[in-house]
Design a protein around this nucleic acid. Structure first.
Length: 282
DNA sequence: ATAAGGCCCTGACCGC
DNA sequence: TGCGGTCAGGGCCTTA
């Protein structure tokens, strides 16, 4: 389940294989994977462009393209949602691997594949990336993600703080794993109404989000699940952060701080893990 | 404006 | 062993 650290890791892993490479041909095996434009213009437009820029906004991968004459091209945007994965391998005449919905054939004999068993992820090819990612809030490491910003966004809100942390317009890139981990780091109950946090708690939460995400990026993200739904890096390696989760999927295990068993509940239709003692009852 | 629920999907997992 | 039911869950959409 790629969140910000997993997306950032995927981007870094892919860049050496893609920088400067020209897309010779695009193949689409399941049209639903292309969100915009329609699959046929997607294929026609992307051919001949090459990779020049590698970026990320929230959980979206942004590949800046250019035309053969150097003129600026489109931006290829990928959201992996739950089970999407990008990987590069040598082109083959064999049938595409199971659940590969689109492939970009490169000029060096390799191909960039998008595989997604649950078909939740999407690709876009747009002139202006803001048309897709323009509504996202600030990145966690952006100074714009300030205590004042977060406090203003939470003020008056009755929804659980856990649910609000998942709102990508408040802070881009936080998903279920890191919301739980950030709340634990901040010693704030996930069930607390967002507007009930005092300024010190908001400051702790902002710091928790930033610290947890930065550390996960350092570790190459988290790998969870099993079999084909396991999240892996583009080269198939596992991330290294799942062993450092302090609450996520540790239900019943002792809190690393106080040894109280970690509790589990559902908030905003999302599985939620917390320490009842360190994070209070809310 | 906020909040709550549905929807998309299919592999993994559980109980019988 | 096989089968059916349930779960997971990000982002967008519809409904109050």
């Amino acid at each position: 389940m790629p969140e910000l650290p997993e997306v950032e890791t995927a981007l870094r892993d892919l860049e050496p294989f893609l920088r400067g490479r020209t897309i010779v041909e695009a193949r689409c095996f399941w049209p639903g994977v292309v969100a915009a434009p329609e699959p046929e213009p997607f294929r026609a437009r992307i051919a001949g462009q090459h990779f020049v820029h590698f970026g990320r906004r929230g959980k979206y991968l942004l590949f800046g393209l250019a035309h053969a004459d150097g003129a600026p091209g489109d931006t290829l945007i990928v959201h992996q949602r739950m089970t999407g994965r990008l990987f590069v391998e040598a082109q083959s005449s064999a049938e595409p691997a199971a659940h590969v919905h689109a492939s970009l054939l490169l000029d060096d004999g390799r191909a960039l594949h998008y595989r997604d068993p649950r078909k939740f992820g999407r690709l876009w090819l747009v002139e202006d990336a803001a048309s897709v990612v323009g509504r996202l809030g600030p990145e966690p490491d952006d100074p714009a993600f300030s205590v004042e910003w977060l406090a203003a966004k939470l003020a008056g809100r009755g929804a659980a703080i856990k649910a609000l942390l998942l709102d990508q317009s408040i802070c881009a890139g936080v998903g279920n794993i890191y919301a739980d981990e950030a709340l634990f780091a901040a010693r704030v109950s996930p069930a607390r109404p967002g507007g009930s946090l005092d300024l010190d708690e908001v400051a702790r939460l902002r710091a928790g989000v930033r610290e947890v995400l930065a550390r996960a990026v350092d570790r190459g993200g988290s790998s969870l699940g099993s079999g084909s739904t396991n999240y892996a890096r583009p080269g198939g390696e596992s991330g290294g952060f799942q062993g450092e989760h302090r609450v996520f999927r540790r239900t019943g295990q002792p809190c690393v701080v106080c040894a109280t068993p970690i509790a589990h509940t559902v908030i905003g239709q999302r599985s939620t893990h917390y320490c009842p003692k360190c994070q209070g009852q809310g």
